[in-house]
Design a protein around this nucleic acid. Structure first.
Lengths: 217, 217
DNA sequence: AAGGCAATAAGGTAAATGCCGTATTTTTAA
DNA sequence: TTAAAAATACGGCATTTACCTTATTGCCTT
């Protein structure tokens, strides 16, 4: 039994490219149709819902891929959705998963990988590009920051400073942080000084507390 | 450059089997050593930490794989850990990820899959068996149940100790707390010592963090 | 009445921290 | 390709912290 696949992709060139890739596996995959946005997809599904899996772009006019995923998994829960996009930021990943996507592949994946992903999803798996998988786990590691996104009062902390802050919150002292981050303890002290200045605090406790309150860490 | 791999696995037969599988890829993988439990692993790592990735069993005597993962990622954060186990329940998956595991493979995976997983993890990916990936996403879909209702473990803090802890969390130092509570700074120190002992921590940061996590304050 | 515990108070000391500098290299952005 | 920002490294110094010890008082509970 061939797997029935549809795509939602506004860019014609990309849509053709995807279809071409799928065409390399005529024994496994049957291409059903291509929608140009979420609204179009829902229309087509209403006319013909005999689709096993959908390759879903994210940025599309009318209705984007995340909202479309939401609707499809509500109206056609048996259909598995794989996000197929260029975006790899944690926010889009998380919202896609929340919307009901069961897989998340980046657009530059090989035809082979995409075909395997389609097979995998039909067997109850969750195909993800490596970086996506890593970021999913990162999200799982900090479930807190998933709960709200009401943060970012922007204290202009640098990435490194946030790293240091995170280690601080784990109770590591300067020396331990320096060992973990492979930098000199003097540098750690300097980072912490800068953190204090930016957060307008004067000790570790309040720095970490403020960072937690503002969801910086 | 070959990837240096160690294993933590109490069962000798399984450990030999893993080693055998790794042996199929002599060009890619260098097997360093096998630990029989978490304690043994930490000992071996202290003697020789030149390991890129660890294949970690979960159920082991002395110290299990999750606790070992926790320790290793704290002490040797550059080492990537792949859980290699028969367990596929959400709880173990989640706790492993939380502990710092970057990959999660089931023991019946083919040698090829395991080798690819090792390569993938070294490239910043997150190798997961399909069912594990699916369950990870399921966890992401309901972050609520992750949030932990595992508090109230009753650390037997006295009322006064909790008061002190609250002031600590506001960033006050010993002297300031003593002024607020109308007691001697020596007494504050003593309270804090007792708090550390009861919470099993050794500095303000972790004491407050633990207190917050366990809803003591 | 006696033992147990919380709360209080005090002192010593080594280590860690917070705050003030300066200065070089690396990365990023314009 | 420059200029700015970030990250790195180092030193001095006063203060704070963490850990050790001892000791007194008062309040419960048996």
């Amino acid at each position: 039994m061939k797997i029935k696949v549809a795509t939602a992709e506004d860019n014609k060139l990309l849509a053709d490219s995807i279809r071409e890739k799928l065409g390399l596996f005529p024994d496994d995959i049957e291409f059903k149709y291509r929608a140009v946005n979420g609204v179009d997809l829902l229309k087509k599904l209403n006319a013909d819902s005999s689709v096993d899996t959908i390759l879903m772009d994210i940025e599309m006019p009318e209705m984007d891929g995340i909202e479309a995923t939401h609707q499809v998994s509500r109206l056609f829960p048996q259909i598995k959705i794989i996000m197929l996009t260029v975006f790899d930021d944690e926010d889009k990943i998380f919202r896609s998963i929340q919307a009901g996507a069961m897989g998340y592949l980046l657009k530059d994946e090989t035809p082979d990988t995409i075909c395997n992903g389609i097979k995998e999803i039909m067997e109850g798996g969750a195909p993800m590009s490596p970086t996506i998988a890593a970021k999913s786990l990162a999200l799982l590691r900090n479930p807190n920051k998933l709960i709200q996104e009401e943060n970012q009062e922007d204290y202009d902390l640098t990435k490194r400073e946030i790293e240091v802050l995170a280690k601080l919150s784990q109770g590591l002292d300067y020396l331990e942080i320096s060992e973990v981050l492979f930098i000199s303890p003097f540098t750690v002290r300097k980072h912490i000084e800068n953190i204090y200045r930016k957060l307008q605090v004067h000790n570790k406790m309040t720095a970490v507390k403020k960072a937690i309150q503002h969801k910086i860490i």
